[in-house]
Design a protein around this nucleic acid. Structure first.
Length: 289
DNA sequence: CGGCTTTGACCCGCGC
DNA sequence: GCGCGGGTCAAAGCCG
């Protein structure tokens, strides 16, 4: 029943993903409405009992990374440029920089979305507070990244607060919390035991603040709509960018796209000068639209 | 010294 | 009721 809906929903969204979409692997629903769907990846292993109820990884459409994303360090640095990272990404306050972390890594993979009905049967509820928080809007999404580093830089600052061994997996799961005082966003990071090169990152909650790392110039629409908690680049960006391509209501100008260093399939068709971005843009042949 | 990671202990839900 | 597994806490240690 519920599950059926979830699957449907997932399929629906998946269909909208350009197979060549550069690096975006999940979707974020309208943040304004607070109707965010819960995005999860499936089938990696028992990574979350609430996540693996619909497909095996083999069944998932794999989104091929754009060609230029090679595994070399240089390319990855290039990538970081493409993503318009801050000039000083290696801020000591950040657990690790994009460049550092992406040494040798590649881009990600695929995604499946679904509503997280189950998350409510959530875990620990030490305080009523938490209980409520959980029940309210547990925005959650996940994505798989092919990377040698576990903790991918997403522009926010995270503090690790736990690590647990995962059943049936040699790889532990790490728990991070956003360091911003009033922000309760968490994220879990773990490796797939099926394919150790895959890293599953699950975000939980919404940031209630601006990206501390990248107070980038206000680029329009997104600010107003997804406002303060959108990160400046990388994964969140990709996510948002992708979502933009699906749902135009947000004012997502080409400037923004360009500046952000990420081009959705939608935007790509309208942009002429991508510069390095071209590396991230799927060739027209690949774009299914 | 502040911020972060590590890690064992603890809590809780769930299945048997 | 008990054991297991997942999630969190918090003290201790590390590091710049």
């Amino acid at each position: 029943m519920e599950m059926a809906n979830s699957v449907e929903y997932s399929s629906l969204l998946l269909e909208q993903i350009p197979s060549s979409y550069a690096g975006i692997f999940d979707m974020w629903s309208d943040c304004e409405k607070g109707s965010l769907a819960f995005m999860d990846l499936l089938g990696l292993h028992d990574y979350d009992s609430s996540l693996h109820d619909f497909q095996s990884p083999e069944q998932l459409p794999v989104i091929s990374p754009p060609q230029p994303l090679s595994t070399t360090t240089s390319t990855l640095h290039e990538t970081s440029e493409v993503l318009s990272l801050p000039a000083t990404p290696n801020s000591s306050s950040i657990s690790s920089s994009w460049a550092d972390q992406h040494t040798n890594d590649e881009q990600a993979i695929n995604v499946v979305a679904r509503q997280d009905k189950e998350h409510q049967k959530s875990k620990k509820q030490l305080k009523p507070q938490k209980k409520n928080q959980k029940k309210q809007k547990d925005i959650r999404f996940a994505f798989i990244t092919k990377s040698e580093v576990d903790h991918l830089e997403d522009g926010y600052r995270w503090r690790k607060y736990g690590q647990k061994a995962v059943k049936n997996s040699p790889f532990p799961r790490s728990y991070y919390r956003c360091t911003y005082t009033t922000c309760g966003v968490k994220k879990r990071v773990e490796r797939s035991h099926d394919d150790p090169t895959l890293v599953v990152t699950t975000y939980e909650g919404q940031h209630t603040h601006v990206n501390p790392v990248m107070p980038r110039g206000n680029s329009s629409g997104l600010q107003s709509s997804c406002s303060n908690y959108y990160p400046s680049n990388t994964i969140y960006d990709m996510k948002l960018s992708y979502f933009q391509s699906l749902q135009p209501p947000l004012n997502f100008g080409s400037n923004y796209v360009h500046e952000r260093g990420f081009v959705t399939s939608h935007a790509a068709s309208t942009l002429e000068d991508h510069g390095l971005l071209q590396d991230m843009v799927p060739s027209s042949k690949q774009v299914k639209e």
